[in-house]
C-alpha cells in the first residue's frame, strides 16, 4: 500500500499514540518520540515497522508521538492512519493487508 495523502490517527492521551503518515519519496522515514523512549523505544520502532511491512508500505514519512501505548494500540493506530491516507473507510482489513 502507498501513503496516498497525509493522515493521522490516535491521540496524545496517556496510553495512546498519535500516528501521522505523509507521502514521501525517500523510502520509509520513521520519527518516534515517546514518554518511555529509553525503556521501549526499540520495541515501539519494531512494532511500527512490522505493521508497515505487513501493510506493504515501502515509503512514507511516519511520525509517532507515543504516550505509553501498548503494542496492540500502536498497531491499530498505524493501520488506521495508513487506511485513512488511502480513504479506505469500509470493510477495514484490521490486522491484515490490502492487496
Amino acid at each position: 500500500m502507498i501513503i496516498g495523502k497525509s493522515a493521522m490517527a490516535g491521540t496524545l492521551e496517556s496510553s495512546d499514540a498519535q500516528v501521522t503518515v505523509e507521502p514521501s519519496e525517500n523510502g520509509l522515514e520513521l520519527e518516534i518520540s515517546s514518554s518511555v523512549m529509553n525503556q521501549y523505544g526499540r520495541q515501539i520502532r519494531a512494532t511500527v515497522m512490522q505493521t508497515l511491512e505487513r501493510l506493504d508500505v515501502q515509503s512514507g514519512k511516519v511520525t509517532v508521538v507515543d504516550k505509553g501505548a501498548l503494542d496492540c494500540t500502536l498497531k491499530a493506530r498505524v493501520e488506521c492512519a495508513v487506511y485513512r491516507s488511502n480513504d479506505i473507510k469500509d470493510a477495514l482489513p484490521w490486522g491484515g493487508a490490502i492487496v
Partner: peptide
Amino acid sequence: MNLVVSHLSEVQVERGNT
C-alpha cells in the same frame, strides 16, 4: 493539554497541514 493538542492536530491534518 494533551486533549487540546490532539484535537487541534486533527483539525490541522484535515486542513492538510502536518
